[in-house]
Design a protein around this nucleic acid. Sequence first.
DNA 1: GTGAAAGCGCTAACAG
DNA 2: CTGTTAGCGCTTTCAC
Lengths: 331, 331
Amino acid sequence: MNENKITIQKIAELAGVNKATVSRVLNGSATISQKTKEKVERIIKEYNYTPNTIARGLAVNKTFTVGFCHDYKDKRAFANHFFYKMLQGIENVIYDNDYLFLMMSRHEREDGTSMFERVVKERRVDGVILPSSLYNEANYRLLKEHRMPFVVLGEREFGHSDVRWVDVDNRQAAQLLTERLYENGYRRIHLYTDQEAIARDKFIADRIDGYTRTMEKLGLPAFVATSVGELQARGTEAVICCTHEQLFELLKETADGLPLPDAELGTFDENPMFQYFKRTVHYVSIDLEKWANRRRIFCFPSSIKKKTFRTLSRFPHFWREHQILNKGQMK
Amino acid sequence: MNENKITIQKIAELAGVNKATVSRVLNGSATISQKTKEKVERIIKEYNYTPNTIARGLAVNKTFTVGFCHDYKDKRAFANHFFYKMLQGIENVIYDNDYLFLMMSRHEREDGTSMFERVVKERRVDGVILPSSLYNEANYRLLKEHRMPFVVLGEREFGHSDVRWVDVDNRQAAQLLTERLYENGYRRIHLYTDQEAIARDKFIADRIDGYTRTMEKLGLPAFVATSVGELQARGTEAVICCTHEQLFELLKETADGLPLPDAELGTFDENPMFQYFKRTVHYVSIDLEKWANRRRIFCFPSSIKKKTFRTLSRFPHFWREHQILNKGQMK
DNA sequence: GTGAAAGCGCTAACAG
DNA sequence: CTGTTAGCGCTTTCAC
């Protein structure tokens, strides 16, 4: 291939030292004389040499790569602004730590194995980030068996106390939203969600809980609807849409016109397009960039730099332990 | 680390053969007796062995990974639905070919080098996909110097005939949009764009060209505006927004109300949120999924499976040569 | 058809 | 402080 590819061996010869010595200056070993260090560094610069991370990884059993797994079938994720903001934040932290970012999808291959599984088994990454929707017992076992550090995006409990996750405080977000609607004069504030999602997704349950408690505190009856009909029958003044799917459903004109023409709409997470919508959307959202910059949201402290990525599995649940709350931002 | 990690050596011992033999059955060498082949395959299955792609890559000088570079500072890209649809399509094709997908950003590191540069120099990927906004003379030289195959997303010429790119037919898209607005009864159809973008981005120039020619054909005066004031002064009936940025500008209420309250709005590419907007948005868009499934849009023919990724650089300009055109889809 | 050995580019003991 | 040696897990001549 590239015949004049420049390797550590060549640099060693050029500098008149052993390649082990070059390796030492590369890795900042203390036991190096200033003289040889400078000589080697000069040659490295002169020949524009960059050590091969893959070979290095093979030697030290690391890849300097973080994997991010997503469900390619989940169109919701790909339509979700929150998802991308997160992705951006993750990328920034990863790059700042001289790591690379590998996208994996829950793509099943012909032989029945998934790309994710193979990546884990082959140790093509040093750690994995995966959304709670992809965190299940099988993946837990896979990751544990291969001693692969991972962190789950979104709270999810399976009785494993050794699982690290990050999440926002959905209860508080729901509280903020409910309170704000109340302050705006609405009283028949109802929540709209998908029946199946209640049991499946913890963030839904938390949002419902936050809403219900707040309504109680306000001395108002809480009502969780799972269909538009229920909302209509209840004379809804303001409706909290648990996900954007519910929101879009209410925004869509049907043969009978808008489902709830007179109700105010509230939801979680921002979408920059909201401002152009026909109907006003009230929302709570977290300033992701702010948190990402503080390197907390993704659980990567700056100290991992150059260190083994295994530390990943020792990170605390920042979001849970510190009770960092949604900064409500209402429109 | 994982003390009982299972390697090709172990499999060889277990099967009572040499690791070279195991390697041969792994790679489907023909010169293998059916008997040993079956024996080895049995052991592999029994021990759930997966060969280490990284080590394999070191031996054959490949990584089985495709890199995708994006500009992390370009908020537009990250807010762009088209961008993500593309990403999804690329991922699918890559996974189908048993390749991995590495996200790179134009992230500058402290030492002044970019992550992209390092990835290329270290050959941590076998090929690179990069948007035309990141394709410049410096990157061209970098990629060529390191014999790194690449394909540019979006047409861009720099006098290098050996550069492969894929793009949609922006001229035809503009034509479709203009014609449709004409059919709807509008006559003072004007185009709105960013002054600087005209020279910088070929797709803008192409859209302008398509619009201008169509207007000529229709016997109408074409008018390219670069400010809202110009549009207002011209009594615009319908305005073609060259990018969504222009569109959003016209959608945003100012102190004086909407900029062009009575004009119809047209643009390129879909955004699924359009349907909820206050104002109707006319748009042309390409059915990306359709083309992605045909594996044409991203220039990865199915034949690259298991073959060196260098073929990438020999792919034809499908989109140019076949004149595959924007299927106009108007709302 | 299969084994032995060298090598991909790097790190990590172990000497000296 | 620096060189030697032995790997990391796999492929690939070259013999036999």
